[in-house]
Simulated scan of single mutants.
Amino acid sequence: MFKGMGGLGDMAKMMKTAQDMQEKMQRLQEDLENTVVEGQSGAGLVRVSVTAKGEIRALSIDPSILVASEKEVVEDLILAAIRDGQSRAAERSAQETRRMADGLGLPPDFKLPF
C-alpha cells in the first residue's frame, strides 16, 4: 500500500528503541539514588552510608574514639570512611551501568551519558 515507505517503519522501531533505552536509564538513575553502600575506617569505628550516586546519607562514629586529644585521628578516620564509601559507591554505580549496557546489547566499552 505504501510502497517505498519501508524506511518509516525502521525509523519508528529506532525511536521506540531509543525511548526504551531512555526509560531504562531513568530507572537506573533512580536505582542508584536508592542503592546505599557502607564505607568504614578504623575497623568499623567510623561508618558512612553513601548512595551509589555518591551522596552521603549517614555517618556513625563509635563514642569510644571521641577523645579531645585524638581530634586529628578522628578527623582522619572520618575522611577515610567517606573516601571508602565513595569508592564503593562508584564501583557499584559502574557495575550497575555495565549490567544495563549488557542488557541493551551495547559493547563493553560503550560510555553511557552519566
Rank of each mutant, 00 (worst) to 15 (best):
Gly85Phe: 09
Glu70Phe: 00
Val67Ile: 08
Val50Pro: 06
Val67Ser: 00
Ala90Ser: 08
Gln86Ala: 02
Gln86Arg: 06
Pro63Gln: 08
Arg88Gly: 01
Lys71Glu: 05
Lys71Cys: 08
Arg92Phe: 06
Glu72Ile: 09
Arg92Trp: 04
Ile61Asn: 05
Ile78Ala: 07
Glu72Leu: 07
Asp84Cys: 10
Leu66Thr: 08
Ser60Cys: 12
Leu66Ile: 10
Glu72Gly: 07
Ala68Ser: 14
Thr51Trp: 14
Lys71Phe: 02
Thr51Gln: 11
Ala68Thr: 07
Glu70Val: 01
Ser69Asp: 08
Val73Ala: 12
Gly85Arg: 09
Val67Arg: 14
Glu55Pro: 15
Ile56Trp: 06
Arg92Asn: 04
Gly54Cys: 14
Val67Met: 08
Asp84Thr: 08
Val74Ile: 05
Ser49Cys: 12
Arg88Ile: 08
Pro63Trp: 11
Glu72Asn: 14
Leu79Ser: 11
Ala58Gln: 15
Glu75Ile: 00
Ala89Gly: 14
Ser49Asp: 15
Ser69Asn: 05
Leu66Gly: 02
Pro63Ile: 08
Ala68Glu: 11
Val50Trp: 06
Val67Glu: 04
Asp84Ala: 11
Ser60Ile: 14
Ala68Phe: 03
Leu77Thr: 01
Lys71Trp: 01
Asp76Ala: 02
Glu75Cys: 04
Arg57Val: 12
Leu59Lys: 06
Gln86Asp: 01
Val67Tyr: 03
Lys71Val: 09
Glu70Met: 00
Ile65Trp: 15
Asp84Gln: 02
Val74Thr: 01
Arg88Phe: 03
Ala52Val: 00
Ile56Thr: 06
Ala68His: 08
Ile82Ser: 10
Val73Tyr: 07
Val67Asp: 08
Val50Asp: 10
Ala80Trp: 04
Val74Glu: 00
Ala68Pro: 12
Leu59Arg: 09
Ile78Tyr: 00
